[in-house]
């Protein structure tokens, strides 16, 4: 029997109350939002609970929302997968824009090590308790976090590519 979304929701709300919100099914994936202080606990619960058993971390992605209010300018999504029931779940958590910080989950999933380093490298999200939080794909000397939206993709001084002539502005490109 497949793992029902309602069961996951019930268990999580019972355990975490108001820290887990916005349950929704986005196409084939059940999603929820978690308060950033509870991320580690929720993931640990999802992993260790015998019925839920989300034992595989598929992916971890940082996201930048510069237009949100300051407490929600960064987001992290964790995708967990239960292979036995073949159920996926996606957890989203919002982080502060000035000091994005969240507890590491490297103690739960070894593979989150590089994923968290990638999020640090590209978004500057700090993972407290991470054993080796340093840049991974970019060079160590780099000072900026290039996947943030304010970081331009190309040199702003270029004159040979003027997108305005094609009806595009920085906003609608």
């Amino acid at each position: 029997m497949a793992l029902e979304n309602t069961l996951i929701q019930e268990k999580l709300t019972q355990k975490f109350g108001n820290s887990v919100t916005n349950f929704a099914t986005m196409r084939d994936i059940f999603t929820l939002e978690v308060n950033k202080d509870k991320v580690h606990e929720v993931i640990q619960f999802l992993k260790d609970d015998e019925e839920l058993n989300f034992h595989f971390l598929t992916d971890l992605a940082g996201i930048h929302y510069p237009d949100n209010n300051v407490d929600e300018q960064f987001a992290l999504t964790y995708q967990l997968h239960n292979w036995i029931e073949n159920t996926r779940i996606r957890i989203k958590t919002f982080l502060n824009g000035e000091n994005p910080e969240v507890q590491t989950i490297t103690d739960l999933f070894l593979c989150s090590n590089w994923m968290e380093r990638e999020a640090w490298d590209f978004y500057g999200i700090k993972f407290t308790g991470h054993p080796q939080l340093k840049r991974i794909l970019n060079m160590d000397e780099m000072v900026s976090h290039p996947m943030r939206k304010e970081f331009p993709m190309e040199d702003g001084g270029r004159t040979d590519k003027d997108d305005r002539f094609f009806g595009r502005t920085p906003v609608n490109c």
């Binding site: 590209f122 794909l137 970019n138 290039p146 996947m147 970081f151 993709m153």
Partner: peptide, 9 residues
């Protein structure tokens, strides 16, 4: 990262 080409960006 030696051939990182920033595909996501």
């Amino acid at each position: 990262g030696y051939i990182h080409r920033a595909f996501e960006k």
